[in-house]
Design a protein around this nucleic acid. Structure first.
Lengths: 226, 226
DNA sequence: TTTTATTGTTACAGAATTGTTACAAACTAA
DNA sequence: TTAGTTTGTAACAATTCTGTAACAATAAAA
């Protein structure tokens, strides 16, 4: 298995062709013609990569892309945009919206394939895969379960997202503002000290006797995973 | 600072143009016209991204790319290949050699810029992280960590800023006034002798047994990083 | 509905960091 | 050498920041 690819495209015939060829290459492929419902299906499918058409029936691929980049569970999903819009300004608008690559129709399937491989090569396997591991900590994004030292740990939704966030970049120190922005839904107002409380709850849950503390406090800066 | 970019190109005029435009965008740019020697310079420069021409005087960009991917300290370096070779099979050969993106000459600078940003967005932040090094001392501005002799050192906020300040200009002697102005928040009143105390604390933290003293006292002038 | 779990806020305790000072030590110039 | 200057060091109090528990509000489940 080379990975799971989801396609959101306007034209069913293009989907069929790409899907058929990708499956011959060993990918698992799922697709949707509708941008809106497509997002729900996409979340369920948990792909490693998204092929996204610029022109969608409901709203533009640009919008879809921006929404994905705001969603913590999808924000690192690699995206290649496929579009008939080949003008310089379109390319730049597309790339700036957060996609990883931009391919103008009509394109050769082999070039698409080469670009898919290039993007997947670069993608952080920790982030893209369903399971993230660090030390003796395992987090399953699909099943939403967390294990430490092979013992299952029950976390509340916020604690889960918080841990998921730290796991995407262990050892990096995040400020409370950065944590707020990434872990809490947009446009929500919470005191920054609230994070301390959630950090404490997370610590309480993932700490095991005889096991080292996994969350480090960096005074006047924030927190990091060890 | 947006990042450091290295260019290996055949045509000096193209280098000049790209370099000039990238620097206007806030990147730090270095370059070479020679693939072979270029690699040495590149290693010294420690870029976050490489722009690589296909056609080089000594050997092809494809070879350079493959060598980079074999080198453990460079294997994650993001690469964008620039080339006049626009045939499908060339693109595929280029992408398959391990580059992250492939741009056919002539290209617009704005598209190049958008693609550079897209690649840097995706790159492992550890590759992109902003490290300052001096001797066996490493300070990571993004991850907010300090290492000496590869052992991590925990510093208080003021000591961190102080060291960060010294690292921007090692070997330069700073007066207490200069240190005060740069390391302490504006409009704060601290005795200049307070600096001595912080210097001492920083020394205590970064000194290792059997390792040389890194902070030099310059009597009646100030302090410097060796 | 009632019950249970999760969440955000606050107040206070506790810990780490900071600035100051006094004195010891090191250095300089005559 | 000595007196004068400058820096090193330890100790202390003040300040700032974080940990924690308790509580009310809200959401989810039974």
């Amino acid at each position: 298995m080379n990975g799971k690819i989801f396609i959101i495209e306007d034209e069913a015939s293009i989907i069929q062709l790409i899907q058929h060829n990708l499956e011959k290459e060993g990918f698992i492929v799922s697709s949707s013609v509708n941008g809106n419902d497509g997002l729900k299906e996409l979340k369920k499918f948990q792909p490693n990569l998204l092929l996204l058409d610029w022109m969608l029936p409901d709203f533009s691929g640009i919008e879809v892309c921006k929404n994905i980049r705001k969603d913590i569970s999808l924000k690192n999903l690699p995206i290649i945009m496929l579009t008939a819009k080949g003008e310089e300004e379109d390319k730049i608008k597309g790339l700036d919206s957060g996609v990883d690559d931009y391919l103008t129709k009509p394109f050769s399937f082999n070039e698409l394939l080469a670009r898919i491989k290039a993007v997947l090569r670069r993608a952080d396997p920790k982030v893209v895969s369903d399971k993230i591991e660090f030390d003796d900590l395992k987090l399953d994004r699909i099943e939403k379960r967390v294990f430490r030292d092979n013992k299952e740990i029950q976390l509340g939704p916020t604690e889960f997202r918080l841990l998921e966030f730290f796991l995407t970049n262990p050892k990096r120190v995040y400020s409370r503002d950065q944590i707020l922005e990434s872990v809490w839904p947009n446009n929500i107002n919470v005191e920054s000290r609230t994070i301390d409380v959630h950090i404490r709850r997370l610590r309480q849950s993932i700490n095991l006797k005889d096991k080292k503390e996994l969350i480090r406090t960096v005074r006047s800066s924030g927190y990091s995973l060890v």
